[in-house]
Each structure stands twice: as C-alpha cells, then as structure tokens.
C-alpha cells in the first residue's frame, strides 16, 4: 500500500497519524496486555487449583520461617513487643506476561494490577518464599515488577542480626552497601528483610564474598540470591495490612 503513493507523502501521513493519536499509546498498551492476558486465561483455569495449593503452601512456609525466627528471638523481643502486633498477610499468584525489552533493565510485567488491589511497593516472592522483587508501578490490569538484579533496585536488608545495609541491585554482582568495616560479617551469612509493621521475615540470599579494604569505611559485600532466575517460576505478591 505504501508503494503506490509518494514516499514523502507516506512519511507525512505517518507523522500526522502519530501526532494526532496520542491516545494511541494507551490503546496499544491496553490492547497488547489484554490480549496477552486473554491468552493466559485459557490455561489459567487448569492452573487455578495448583495455584491455590501453592499459595497455601507458600503462606505456610512463610509462617514457618517466621516462627523459626521468632523462636530464636522470642526472649529478646518479649520486652520490645509489649504491644500487640495486629497485621494480616495474604498473597496472590501472578503470571509473567512480558519483559522489559531493554537489555539493561530487569523489569517484568505481570497479569494483575489495580483490579486485584495491587499497590506500588508490595513485595514479590517466588514459590519458596524468597524475594524476587517489588512492584514499582501498577495499572488497571497489569503491573511492573522490578527484580532484585535491576539497576534501580534498592532495599534495606539485615545480615543475620549483625548489621543492616542497603541491598543494591545490578546486572553484575548484587551488593550490600554501607555496612561498617568493623562488623563481623562472614560468608554464608543469611540476608533478609522485615516487612514493615510486621514480624514477617523474607529471605533474600546469603553473603557470597566479603572484601575488606582498610582505606574504606564500609565493607564490600556480594550477595548470592536464593531466587536466581524467575524465568520458570510462578511468582506471588505479598499483600499486607
């Protein structure tokens, strides 16, 4: 169709359509994501029971981890937790519908959004309860999840009970920043974080390398993630109140 009219006219018409249809962007986005979602729905019914069981399993395993941690720290926390901890935690299964096409980003798009009350900042875990990433943006039917190894991923984490620092993602090594050199951090120390206003512990990984430079005030810590690749995994979004 393009060959029958002048090429300059082609370009002009295309630019005209482009400029005059700014809402085309939203239309295309919604169309493509809804299409992906509908294709996924064909398989969704079959997977529904499995997802439900996996969800229950995940919740139980998370509760178990929480209990283990609390058992160890119960005596210390008794005084500190003189108040009641009223929180409700739930999780919702999601499927990956697309990836960010940029080679520098590690962002995935999942098939649930504001319609399922997903909010920005919620944490995403795999079927074993290990952290995968967090929600960075929500739309009506889909959401963007930043994975741990995305260049913009940051999270305050604890290394055992020795110290806390800032977990910083990246395409190379995942690092923990701002932990002072005098802290006794060892290889294989577990890295975790606590969900705000709860006692729930989510494990991220373990210390892979500890490099101490006498001239630097902070340790150089590399982390080995427990959830290395989300490609073949189902993911769950933790909802808490």
């Amino acid at each position: 169709m393009f060959s029958k009219i002048k090429p300059k006219l082609n370009l002009f018409l295309f630019l005209l359509i482009f400029i005059t249809t700014i809402s085309l962007k939203d239309f295309l986005k919604d169309f493509l994501f809804v299409l992906s979602k509908n294709i996924l729905n064909i398989y969704q019914e079959k997977n529904e029971k499995i997802l439900k069981l996996e969800k229950e399993n995940l919740l139980l395993s998370l509760k178990l981890k929480e209990s283990d941690y609390l058992r160890e720290e119960n005596e210390k926390l008794k005084k500190a937790l003189n108040f009641k901890t009223n929180y409700k935690i739930n999780c919702i299964g999601a499927q990956i519908i697309a990836y960010d096409p940029s080679f520098l980003r590690r962002i995935i798009i999942i098939n649930i959004g504001e319609d399922k009350k997903i909010k920005k900042g919620m944490y995403v875990v795999d079927e074993n309860g290990y952290l995968v990433g967090k929600i960075i943006e929500t739309k009506k039917n889909y959401s963007y999840v930043s994975l741990i190894n995305d260049i913009d991923f940051n999270l305050v984490v604890f290394v055992e009970e020795k110290a806390y620092g800032l977990l910083h993602g990246g395409l190379g090594e995942i690092k923990i920043l701002y932990i002072e050199s005098d802290k006794n951090i060892n290889i294989n120390d577990k890295v975790y974080f606590k969900i705000p206003n709860t006692d729930l512990i989510i494990y991220v990984g373990e210390i892979k390398n500890v490099n101490k430079n006498p001239q630097e005030p902070f340790l150089d810590l590399n982390v080995k993630l427990y959830s290395e690749n989300v490609m073949f995994h189902k993911i769950f979004i933790l909802k808490y109140e």
Binding site: F2, N10, L11, L28, A98, R105
Partner: peptide, 23 residues
C-alpha cells in the same frame, strides 16, 4: 533507506510502549 527509516520509527515507538522508563 526510506522504507527502513519508517520501520525504524514505527518499531522505536512500539518498543517505547513496553519500556518502564521510555528510552
């Protein structure tokens, strides 16, 4: 050239739709 230029423009635009931060 002209055909590729149009294609590059179209697909540059479509790719931007899927990027979290428009590149």
């Amino acid at each position: 050239f002209k055909q590729t230029f149009i294609l590059a423009f179209i697909f540059g635009y479509i790719k931007n739709l899927f990027l979290f931060e428009n590149i």
